[in-house]
Design a protein around this nucleic acid. Structure first.
Lengths: 224, 224
DNA sequence: TTAATAGTGTCTGTGAGACAATATCAG
DNA sequence: CTGATATTGTCTCACAGACACTATTAA
């Protein structure tokens, strides 16, 4: 190991993982289980030390954290911000690359892994470290990016209806909006496309099903 | 020092510092001078190892880097993204928290510090590490944020005219826009305010001077 | 007075948003 | 048929953008 005249910071990743549970935007918290680490027993954002022997980069480390805690690869994972400082971790000067992740409604409904808990995004309890700051920034980013991208489709199953997307939009942004205007906007943005199917079963007209267009997030441009 | 079973990554900061030089958006590069570090002698983004004994956090480290290389505190400094991986630095697994900074036109004109060089943002040479990726992302962020915030005012002196702001806007976004529409939009966005003075000297009507409103960047909201 | 740039007023097209009207579904 | 919700069509208002016109300045 090539040395460095300064003590190296502790390098971590933390993940703010969101899903829809019972119609509400929810954040995943995990019980800390390692007795060698601080705040053992407390609920916190899932995270951990970067394993430089196996993780190719920080994104891979975050992916590994989700995979080991939840058992699957997160469909959407984006870097949020890096939190750092001398005092944020009792061990030593630390640096946490924070990510946020979106998981479709229902995927985690049956997952009954011990120590995991979902809390409503608008009533997050007090968390250790600076995890409340991370969660707050993740929600702000999510709210903001929802207004100009196909981000929210990652909170829904592969095929979804416009009313469902509209409900998620209202849940995330916290604002009531006109569904007719929403429909028109989202359709000529060219970020979703009809599957050709409809969802039957309701005692009303069957809504058209759509899927996300393209594999990643689509962002829209502003003018001036 | 509390140990950790994994080798710690090398923790760095890098800064993409922009200013206007001869009417063009320009990026600052610095000659690497430390013979113990890779790419000594090459031009690269100014950066360095985080000093955990003196830097409170990564932002403070980036501020220190700018201060020691340029001799002043950067007026605007924002975290951009964290670049990481096993191979990006020949020393070892590394993690660089990248920042971008904006400095008013003219402030660096007289600065004649050896080893510093400005290059036009649209013709950046090949750089060591993944510094080209950092610079590209910084320019994308700058271009994008310019369209919905008061960010560009940080590339101008404290008092500036609307035509000056418009010229910077066109230079940064690379698009020709209508100055009348630009003026109207920027004025009712409430992000700048008139100083009450005008800039005389030209052989034409003296333009009104404005200043940025508020101390930080102002962002605008989108609708739907 | 003239050349040059600053600033203002007017018109138009586009798109968000409200709302009415029509279309389907299950029972 | 009826009660529900989905989808489409129409109108209005706000605003970006184009452009013409007026206002100032120094020489």
């Amino acid at each position: 190991m090539i040395m460095n005249q300064y003590e190296d910071p502790l390098a971590l990743v933390d993940v703010a993982l969101f899903t829809i549970q019972e119609g509400r935007l929810s954040l995943l918290l995990a019980t800390r289980k390692n007795p060698d680490e601080p705040y053992c027993g407390a609920l916190a954002l899932p995270g951990g030390v970067i394993h430089t022997d196996e993780d190719e980069d920080a994104q891979a480390a975050a992916r590994r954290v989700v995979r080991t805690k939840l058992g699957f690869d997160p469909p959407y994972l984006e870097q949020l911000y890096t939190f750092s400082g001398r005092l944020r971790d009792p061990r030593r000067w630390s640096l946490s690359v924070a990510y946020y992740s979106l998981v479709p409604e229902g995927v985690l409904a049956e997952t009954r892994i011990a120590g995991l808990e979902f809390v409503a995004a608008d009533s997050i309890p007090q968390l250790p470290f600076d995890h409340n700051a991370i969660a707050d920034m993740a929600i702000r980013r999510l709210r903001n990016k929802s207004t100009y991208s196909s981000l929210l489709t990652f909170l829904l199953p592969p095929a979804f209806t416009i009313p469902e997307l509209h409900a998620v939009y209202e849940q995330v942004t916290g604002s009531a909006t006109n569904i007719a205007a929403f429909r028109k906007k989202v359709l000529d943005e060219d970020i979703i496309e009809p599957t050709g199917e409809r969802r039957t079963g309701g005692q009303h007209r069957a809504p058209d099903l759509y899927r996300r267009k393209g594999s990643g997030v689509q962002e829209l441009k502003r003018t001036i």
